[in-house]
Write a protein that binds this DNA or RNA. Structure first.
Length: 544
RNA sequence: GGCCAGUUGGUGAAGCGGUUUAACACACUGCCCUUUCACGGCAGGAUACACGGGUCCGAAUCCCGUACUGGUCACCA
């Protein structure tokens, strides 16, 4: 009778052992970690999911394990066009290597298919197995009945769900079940829970520590009305068959742990190690809440792309949040690849950290300062190509000058830190290009001293020392202080100091009163361009 | 409401019963260096262990309670 029922519901299923042979234990070295990123194909990866994906991949790659991508598309309402492609592309953009599963080269690996809707038969087989040992059953509760049930439960302050006396079809005879199905009554498959809510289970979470819950006693849905499995069931089946060792996911799953615990148990599989990540939080006025991909611009990866924050900086930031000892390690090894840092679950904070844009930008600033001039230039080109074609064209046209400018006080132990993102570069560099410099007319003062300098002191072949001595001479000539200490003691006895003199020159060539080293700027500009600027803005300077 | 988790200065955090007058990093303030800026050096301030009980010779660290915050209670993941 039971066989008939199962055959009626799942006419084409295989034996559980078939799959167990098909998906053998992985042949990996001792301690290798197998993780997965298992998103719904709802489109883009955001800060939160990137965090989880990055941590998962790092945990696997640090141990010569496997990181695979599985697509959880069993809710067809959530489907988004190009969802899968976008996820792969986003991971790829962050150099998160997908070893197995759904990749840019199609599905890779022997544990597939890795798209859940393609695994329907597998879930059916496992559901039928559970039916065969009387741990699952078809449930004929209608939506209306379910709703009424919930109302009663809410009113009487009972636990909500299908259990005990509420699980009306739990103990129906197989004959009656067959009859109802043949009658065309809609049904789903539920777990026949063996749990007792008064008993406790203990689960060790690698991040949250030792956890204790009441046993699950709900007859949770295994197979939905559309024939696809629920998350819970798919998780238990897939992560068993795919031999995931560490399930890394958001801590919103914590409360369904008792369900998963029971599911693994009834299926006869070992529970994976769980690592529940706390969400990244954001301060929203008075309240602090989970970073939301719908509400917060900071959640979108594209936001940083547009800003020109390099992907490396984002990974650096994510690791800083993920492992409390990372920052110290990185400060000690600032030029080391972060792949050398070993991720440690023990060092993951169990409370959610507040997203700190300032910190991210600071990390980015440091990262950018360590880049060589030519690397920086190339990355800047990439960025401007997409977001500022005018700037891009100038950078290409004046490649050597640009690199030289970028290199001012750069390639040394403690480089300048001017930029936290590529979008900030133009504002500090535009004046190097005549095309931008002459775009709008400016009115400038102190022309006498400036003209005197360029006519009588400036020599393009001066060394920095010679150059600076001339600045001092010029300052003295006009009564400006050359000794800053003396000037500070008696500021009133001078019209100004050498600072004012050098800033006159600086402003005349850049319009800005703060720039990188002026000597270098004048060197890069060179005699011809300097003369052009002087002639344009200080016509009276023309020697005849 | 039930269940679960979290709570160390503005932020991320170290801490795992005594060397804590509580690290470190970011941010902030001041000084020094200095042609501006940046770098660097030095110093500084923080109303920081949510609150209340216990255990202990001793508690940020262990236990209990309270408060607050977050999560979750679907045929969504």
């Amino acid at each position: 009778m039971k066989d008939e029922l199962i055959k009626l519901i799942f006419p084409n299923v295989k034996d559980k052992s078939y799959y167990e042979e098909k998906y053998p234990k992985r042949d990996l070295k001792e301690g290798a970690v197998v993780t997965r990123f298992a998103p719904s194909p709802t489109g883009f990866v955001h800060m939160g999911s990137l965090f989880s994906a990055y941590v998962s991949s790092k945990a696997a790659h640090d141990t010569d394990g496997v990181f695979f991508l599985r697509i959880e598309d069993t809710d067809q309402k959530r489907e988004v066009e190009n969802g899968i492609e976008n996820i792969i592309r986003d991971l790829d953009n962050f150099d998160i290597k997908i070893d197995e599963g759904v990749t840019s080269n199609g599905e890779v690996g022997i544990y597939g298919p890795y798209i859940q809707t393609h695994r329907k038969e597998i879930y059916e087989s496992f559901a039928s197995y559970l039916m065969s040992i009387d741990l699952a059953y078809p449930c004929f509760l209608t939506e209306k009945e379910l709703e009424e049930m919930r109302e009663i439960q809410e009113k009487d302050k009972l636990e909500i769900g299908c259990y005990g006396a509420f699980a009306k079809y739990r103990d129906l005879s197989d004959e009656e079940r067959i009859k109802k199905i043949k009658n065309g009554e809609p049904y789903i498959i539920r777990l026949k829970s063996q749990g007792d809510i008064n008993k406790r289970i203990h689960i060790k979470d690698l991040i949250k520590g030792d956890l204790e819950f009441p046993e699950n006693n709900i007859d949770v849905v295994l197979i939905k009305g559309d024939g696809f499995p629920t998350y819970h069931f798919a998780h238990a089946v897939d992560d068993s068959l795919m031999h995931t060792t560490h399930v890394i996911r958001g801590d919103e799953w914590l409360s369904s742990l008792p369900i998963h615990y029971e599911l693994f148990k009834v299926l006869g599989y070992k529970l994976p190690k769980y690592c529940h990540l706390s969400p990244i939080m954001i301060q929203d006025g008075e309240i602090r809440r989970k970073l939301s991909k719908r509400k917060d611009k900071e959640a979108a990866i594209s936001f940083y792309h547009e800003l020109g924050v390099p992907k490396e900086a984002i990974k650096l930031y994510l690791l800083t949040i993920a492992n409390s000892n990372f920052e110290e390690w990185y400060n000690a090894n600032p030029r080391e690849s972060i792949d050398k840092f070993k991720f440690d679950f023990k060092k993951v904070s169990s409370s959610g950290s507040l997203f700190d844009m300032e910190k991210l930008l600071n990390i980015s600033k440091n990262y950018l300062s360590y880049l060589s001039a030519s690397d920086f230039y190339n990355r800047l080109l990439e960025y401007t190509k997409e977001y500022d074609s005018e700037f891009y064209n100038l950078l290409v046209k004046y490649k050597d000058d640009s690199i030289e400018f970028i290199n001012i006080e750069r390639e040394r132990k403690k480089p300048r830190k001017d930029y936290s993102s590529f979008s900030e570069v133009k504002d500090n560099m535009w004046y190097m290009f005549d095309e931008l410099f002459f775009k709008e007319k400016k009115s400038l003062d102190n022309s006498e001293i400036i003209i005197d300098y360029f006519n009588n002191y400036y020599d393009s072949s001066d060394t920095e020392e010679e150059w600076f001595n001339k600045m001092k001479d010029l300052a003295s000539k006009y009564g400006y202080a050359t000794d800053m200490k003396a000037y500070k003691e008696e500021p009133d006895s001078y019209p100004g100091s050498i600072v004012d003199i050098s800033n006159m020159i600086r402003i005349s060539m850049t319009t800005k009163d703060n720039t990188p080293n002026l000597y270098n700027i004048l060197k890069i500009l060179g005699k011809t361009r300097i003369e052009k600027r002087i002639n344009e803005y200080y016509p009276s300077s023309k020697k005849d």
